[in-house]
């Protein structure tokens, strides 16, 4: 159920155009390519075609032109082999369903089971391991509606882990989630990256992107830019992706600078702001980790 070792993990979209039955063209000629061991952010405003691209990657919509391939296989094959795991937004399911945490995570293993979906020891082990990794093992017998918002999110992450997907898609994983859960999920995503998986996170929370994503795909009806965060995440590109939808607060012209020199504090309630330094220099909260990753990747290349 895993890609052959001689076939490296890749995710590629080539000229993907999606037209809905009502004639609406949601995405035009989207092209990008990603490799394993990556956390990539998919960034765009609402209505930019972000969800459509997600759906195309998951095989929910068939592109009217172009194609998506995963390790050079079409999405359909990748699906059957259990390569693609999906972490949905919490609103997408009915939380009053009479299933417990363990049941939901076990659903991630269906692809590995026989026709009757009777779990084997390997399935139970994978589920137990996933539940322990997200810290929900003690809550495994809870009905899912009795969980907190952050715990609900972690159930889905655990399901993706149990599925052992090579490509993990997360749809707005940090909305309605407390800071602690966010940090736990980010830590987990870093572990998964270290294991060589490809993680694609759709988000409109710009501030958290440089912190844990090493690549970015910027979209607005098509792919505007794709590449390492430090190259793609520039004020120019973001302006193109967001147009007027982005609130711009230029600190260099603020009174704060005049009074306090370099001492700048930015407080926001909900979403983390993106802070750009001089010349578009990205502000990282955890700089060393990022630089280590960049260095490692350079070393790997040469």
């Amino acid at each position: 159920m895993t890609p052959a070792p001689d076939r490296p993990l890749t995710l590629a979209a080539r000229g993907v155009t999606v037209t809905y039955p009502n004639g609406h063209v949601a995405l035009t000629d989207a092209t990008f390519a990603l490799g394993g061991g990556t956390i990539c952010a998919l960034v765009g405003v609402n209505g930019s075609g972000k969800s459509t691209l997600f759906k195309a990657l998951m095989g929910f919509v068939v592109p009217s032109a172009g194609a998506v391939t995963i390790s050079d296989e079409p999405v359909r094959t990748a699906q059957r082999r259990g390569w693609v795991a999906y972490v949905p937004q919490a609103e997408e399911v009915d939380w009053t369903f009479p299933v417990n945490v363990h049941d939901v995570v076990m659903m991630g293993r269906y692809g590995y089971m026989n026709f009757l979906r009777i779990p084997r020891a390997a399935d139970r082990d994978a589920v137990a391991d996933a539940l322990r990794r997200v810290g929900l093992w003690d809550l495994r017998d809870r009905q899912i509606g009795e969980l907190s918002g952050g715990q609900k999110k972690r159930v889905f992450v655990a399901r993706a882990l149990a599925q052992q997907g090579r490509v993990i898609l997360l749809d707005e994983p940090f909305t309605g989630v407390d800071v602690k859960t966010e940090e736990a999920i980010v830590a987990l995503l870093r572990e998964l990256r270290a294991e060589g998986r490809l993680i694609l996170v759709s988000t409109h929370n710009l501030g958290s992107v440089p912190e844990f994503c090493d690549q970015v795909v910027l979209i607005n009806r098509t792919v505007l830019a794709c590449g390492p965060t430090s190259e793609v995440f520039t004020a120019d590109n973001l302006q193109r992706a967001f147009g007027g939808a982005l609130r711009h607060f230029d600190l260099s012209r603020s009174t704060v600078e005049e009074h306090d020199g370099r001492q700048v504090t930015v407080l926001t309630d909900d979403e983390r702001p993106l802070v750009l330094g001089q010349g578009g220099h990205l502000e990282y909260r955890d700089r060393s980790a990022h630089e280590k990753l960049v260095a490692d990747r350079e070393a790997g290349k040469t």
Binding site: M58, G59, F60, R76, Q79, R80, G82, V84, A85, Y86, P88, E92, V93, D94, F97, V99, V104, M107, G108, Y110, G111, R117, R159, Q163
Partner: peptide
């Protein structure tokens, strides 16, 4: 299968 289809059709689809 019907349970997963009722509970989370999207997941059912990603699993093929």
């Amino acid at each position: 299968d019907l349970l997963l289809f009722s509970f989370d059709p999207n997941q059912a689809r990603t699993l093929g």
